[in-house]
Design a protein around this nucleic acid. Structure first.
Lengths: 222, 222
DNA sequence: TAGATTGTTAATCGATTAACAATC
DNA sequence: TAGATTGTTAATCGATTAACAATC
């Protein structure tokens, strides 16, 4: 198992996808799979799958392929899904509430412990048994409960300050939904989800597609 | 302006980020910017910025740099943000409701026209003046109103069928939040937002970071 | 004009794919 | 054993960076 090789972000971002496909195979009772067959299902090359996996170890067997359940569990370990993470949500607006109610994350080990907002209307409200607290209480809470991860679903004007505070209080990861790039000095990990960027990418591609179609039509008319 | 060059996904995904930074510059009253200064703000190379932009045309001026407002507007055009898009949301659970309430998308031209669900408890409910309709009424609605984009926030078990239907009814783009890769035969554009993939990437990186720190500590103790 | 900075070509780097020896 | 398929090295491809002539 190559211990400390630098692994590219491209590879890391493919891991959850492998995990997802293996989970489906498992559900369908499929016991073993070759890189070739998996590659056909996923629409990637078999080479890429083997290269990706071999960044983390040799999980397969020559002449046989990969044991689905074993590989599934190994990828879970690689992704850190065998750990539990204590989570808070900062900003309990629509999106914060949606994430709070999303139990799938909970099942994967991301345990919601606290909810924080500045809005007096929201403070005191309860979601899945957890009370929304004033953001002033956050520092004490984070330190006492050793919070690992914060989901940031608050307005972009406030997110930088909050992110820096959380980092200084020992939070390890930030899942940022604000349309800002948080480049913090500390070694906290930031994962951005830029929904509006994603939507713009979609509109770009829709337009390109339409241009392409128009061009085809024109060609046909000549 | 190079008309029909094939533009890589990497470039496309950077466009909204440029757009975001230029928007901020504009807000701060900055009139012109060089690729060098922008590169320093964004943490990328000036070369990359110039290369990326020149896929779409020469927007700058030698010796001067780029006019912020002009470039901002040009990128908006490239992204198709000068158009309006008629949007429906399919699946009005927590996430669907959150997206329905998110007015920023509306401001950018993504106009919410309809909400659909199967749940009788939700049907008849109103969000921002729009009534949640039974999914059975969706076909007629989509065809009549010439819907451009559907946000898919429904359970993964149902998403494939719905996606195929929508594509066949002429919808141009799907913004998919289900943990499934929709590979449709038709030429509808699919943009996936895999939230759980994103969260897993975060947990992977948190674990790596912790391993690195431990390694450092060990080294120190020797 | 001189200085600044673009647009673009060339060089480098990294990621993906192909090939194949190792081995189950 | 023979066939299959991995793990891994080598070749290819594409994306990023560097360099610089063009030009405002």
């Amino acid at each position: 198992m190559p211990a400390n090789r630098r692994i590219s972000m491209a590879v890391i971002r493919r891991l959850p996808r492998y995990y997802r496909y293996l989970g489906e195979l498992l559900e369908n009772g499929i016991k073993r799979i070759s890189s070739k067959e998996l590659s056909e299902r996923m629409g990637v090359t078999a080479s890429q799958i083997r290269q990706d996996l071999n960044n983390f170890g040799g999980f397969g067997q020559q002449g046989y392929g990969y044991n689905v359940e074993y590989l599934y569990k190994e990828i879970a370990k690689i992704l850190g899904l065998d750990n539990k993470y204590k989570v808070i949500i900062v900003g309990v607006g629509n999106l914060g509430q949606a994430l709070a109610n999303y139990v799938k994350f909970e099942e994967r080990g991301f345990v919601l412990c606290g909810l924080f907002d500045v809005n007096p209307r929201l403070i005191g409200m309860t979601i899945r048994g957890i009370e929304v607290k004033d953001i002033d209480e956050m520092e004490a809470f984070v330190k006492e409960n050793k919070i690992d991860i914060a989901y940031l679903t608050l307005p972009k004007s406030k997110v930088r300050k909050v992110a820096e505070d959380l980092a200084s209080w020992g939070v390890k990861g930030l899942w940022n939904f604000s349309p800002v790039d948080l480049d913090l000095s500390s070694d906290v990990i930031v994962e951005d989800v830029h929904l509006s960027d994603s939507l713009m990418t979609l509109s770009y591609r829709i337009n390109r597609q339409m241009q392409k179609k128009e061009a085809q039509l024109k060609k046909l008319h000549k």
